[in-house]
Design a protein around this nucleic acid. Structure first.
Lengths: 236, 236
DNA sequence: CATCTTCAGATCCTATAGGACCAGGCACGG
DNA sequence: CCGTGCCTGGTCCTATAGGATCTGAAGATG
């Protein structure tokens, strides 16, 4: 029906995307991921396979494949013969566990990344921090979306710069959850000034080339994030 | 050949229901996972969707879903429009990275698990170590399969006993790879005596209730595993 | 009024069909 | 002998059909 595969751009999809040689399931995956990150899909709501297929104007088969991949990220949960649901909201205990895990993994990433740091890597990190400073920080999601993206990018870059594929995988298992918490934790961006300063401190520590210093800076950042989030926690 | 028979080793249902209803994709997933773990699917070989479907006497749809889940574990790799292939053999560098990651994560797990240890948990760990001692250690895979299973179970139990779902996820991202390395690293089980002693040491340290001791014992174990593997490494 | 039955719709799950692409073999012309 | 074109089979990918199960509401019955 749609999906004019070779060359010709069909009018089936809005916003005529080339789509030429991309698998449809990948598109569905990214679309669902964006919806989850943006908060358009709130925790607890069901994600119907057929419904999503109708909404995106594709058949259920690619949707099924995309959801199978998403399940492994912890963003959606699947119950056999019942369907998929968006993973429930974080409790305070979930948040504590997440920070405990970050505290175990991210300083190690900083230490390893510091040992292999190149000027190119450093430039990327500097760009991320600059984007963090420049990003708008309004109350609505659309306004602080750039901020969250830069924040996540900074941490992900450090994980990737370890050169260790398994540390990247371990961090990736957490990365999505971190953003999801920021969205549904209730508080918006209230600690940007502190957070930016801490990111800058991590960056400076990395630039000195002292791995222990970098690890300490990262550990301090994570601990302070935890502390602020607990202070700002909604009454609930 | 194929399914129809209810799971032999998977936990049985409360027997009240015939449970004839099970999702086919789950069976395919388990079957493929077992094939990967057993070495029946050697690294680098293609995993054809249609071919697997014919072999298991199902349609390609559940196979596609199972492979989408497997991809996220790192056991198979997918190239868009080209299909799935079993992930390539570990290089020496991959192994070093894996051990680096284990060294970052597993001692933390031991420390956290130690803090929340219960008698029930301890009993499970003791059983795992006992199984490790009793397991046959022949040259063929079928013979040391039980050994590998007990080894993996020991480490997984410690991860689960942290009570931290994210540390479990982080470890799970590694767990499968550890077994795969044991299979294709070339060496069979040559260090069982040492490894059993180290597992016992970790268990003892946990039993003392001293978290730092437990972490240290686990770190020593991982480091020694790395050292022995490097010593035994095939010429390549 | 309360409870049970029935039924229509939605959903999940699997099978099947068909289009597009790729690799390899084979005949044919130079 | 060698290169080229054709063809066939294999594979991936998506759409569609149909069976099985669950949900929820309307209607019937005590």
């Amino acid at each position: 029906m749609q999906l004019a595969s070779t060359g010709s751009h069909s009018e089936g999809r809005p916003a005529g995307r080339p789509v030429s040689r991309q698998v449809l399931a990948d598109h569905v995956y990214e679309e669902l991921l964006a919806s989850l990150m943006d908060g358009r899909l709130e925790p607890g709501t069901a994600v119907s396979i057929d419904g999503t297929a109708r909404e995106l104007d594709v058949s259920p088969t690619p949707v099924r494949e995309a959801l199978a991949r998403l399940e492994h990220t912890g963003m959606v949960r699947r119950v056999a013969l019942k369907g998929y649901r968006v993973a429930p909201v974080f409790t305070r205990e979930d948040f504590a566990e997440l920070m405990e895990a970050r505290l175990a993994i991210e300083p190690v990433n900083a230490r390893l990344a510091c040992a292999r740091l190149t000027t190119g890597h450093l430039a990327e990190l500097e760009r991320a921090v600059a984007d963090l400073k420049d990003a708008p920080r309004g109350p609505s999601f659309a306004e602080f979306r750039g901020y969250l993206e830069a924040d996540e990018r900074f941490h992900r870059l450090i994980a990737e710069q370890t050169g260790n594929q398994f540390m990247v995988a371990a961090y990736a298992a957490l990365g999505g959850q971190i953003q999801r918490f920021r969205l549904f934790g209730g508080v918006g961006i209230t600690d940007a000034d502190h957070a930016i300063a801490e990111h800058q401190a991590v960056l400076d520590a990395l630039a000195t080339g002292d791995p222990e210093k970098a690890a300490a800076a990262m550990a301090e950042h994570v601990q302070k994030v935890r502390g602020r989030a607990i202070a700002d926690a909604p009454a609930e």
